[in-house]
Deep mutational scan, measured.
Amino acid sequence: RKWEEIAERLREEFNINPEEAREAVEKAGGNEEEARRIVKKRL
């Protein structure tokens, strides 16, 4: 699934746990840019 690939990239890029990465992607509706913004806000 594409969402899992996005979550994996976010996890590696921001050094967050898989659960946090998945939550961000879900919140963003699968949009990678939006997920990235969500993760950055949390850091």
Score class of each variant (00 low, 15 high):
I16E: 02
K40L: 09
N31L: 10
A7V: 07
N15E: 13
E32Y: 05
R9F: 04
E13A: 05
R42E: 15
E8M: 14
E33S: 07
N15R: 13
K41M: 15
E34I: 02
K27M: 11
K2A: 12
A7Q: 07
V25L: 08
G30W: 03
N17F: 02
R11D: 06
E19Q: 10
I38L: 12
I38S: 09
V39K: 00
E34K: 09
G30K: 04
A35D: 00
E5N: 10
E23T: 12
K40F: 02
R22E: 15
G29R: 11
E23F: 01
A7G: 07
L10P: 00
R22C: 07
N17L: 14
E19G: 15
R22H: 15
R9Q: 14
V25W: 03
E26K: 07
R22Y: 03
I38E: 14
L10D: 00
N31S: 11
V25P: 00
R1E: 15
R22G: 10
L43P: 15
E34W: 05
N31Q: 07
I16F: 02
R9A: 13
L43Y: 04
P18V: 15
N17R: 09
A35W: 00
K41P: 12
K41T: 10
R22W: 03
E32L: 07
R42Q: 07
A28D: 00
F14C: 04
I6D: 02
I16G: 02
I16Q: 03
K40M: 03
R37K: 15
E4I: 07
I16P: 01
G30Y: 12
N17Y: 03
E12D: 01
R9S: 10
K40G: 12
E13W: 02
A24V: 13
E13G: 09
A24W: 04
A35K: 00
E32T: 07
V25G: 02
E4D: 02
E23P: 02
N15V: 09
E32G: 07
K27W: 03
I6T: 14
I16C: 13
E20R: 12
E23G: 13
A7D: 07
E8G: 13
E13N: 10
E34F: 05
F14M: 15
E32Q: 03
L10G: 00
W3T: 15
R36I: 09
A28R: 01
N31T: 12
I6Y: 03
R42A: 12
W3V: 15
A21D: 00
E4P: 03
K2P: 08
W3L: 15
R42T: 11
A21M: 03
E32V: 10
E19F: 01
A35I: 01
E26L: 06
F14S: 06
F14G: 03
R9T: 09
I38V: 13
A21V: 05
K2Y: 12
E34V: 06
A24Q: 05
R42G: 13
E8R: 12
K2C: 04
I16K: 00
K2R: 12
E32K: 09
L43T: 02
E32P: 11
N17K: 03
V39E: 05
E8C: 04
E12W: 03
N15K: 14
F14D: 03
A28G: 12
V25A: 12
F14Y: 09
A24E: 13
K40H: 07
V25Y: 02
E34M: 06
W3R: 14
A24R: 01
R37E: 14
I38K: 12
R1V: 13
K2F: 11
V39M: 09
E19K: 09
E26T: 04
E33M: 08
A28T: 14
L10T: 03
R9Y: 03
E34H: 15
K2D: 14
E32S: 06
N31I: 04
E23A: 09
R11P: 02
E23I: 06
E19N: 11
N31Y: 05
E5D: 08
A7F: 00
A24P: 01
L10K: 00
R36D: 02
A21T: 04
E26F: 02
N31E: 11
I6N: 04
K41A: 13
E19L: 06
K27S: 10
E5C: 08
V39H: 01
V25C: 09
A7Y: 03
E33A: 10
I16H: 00
E26R: 07
E20S: 07
A7N: 03
L10N: 00
G29C: 05
E8N: 05
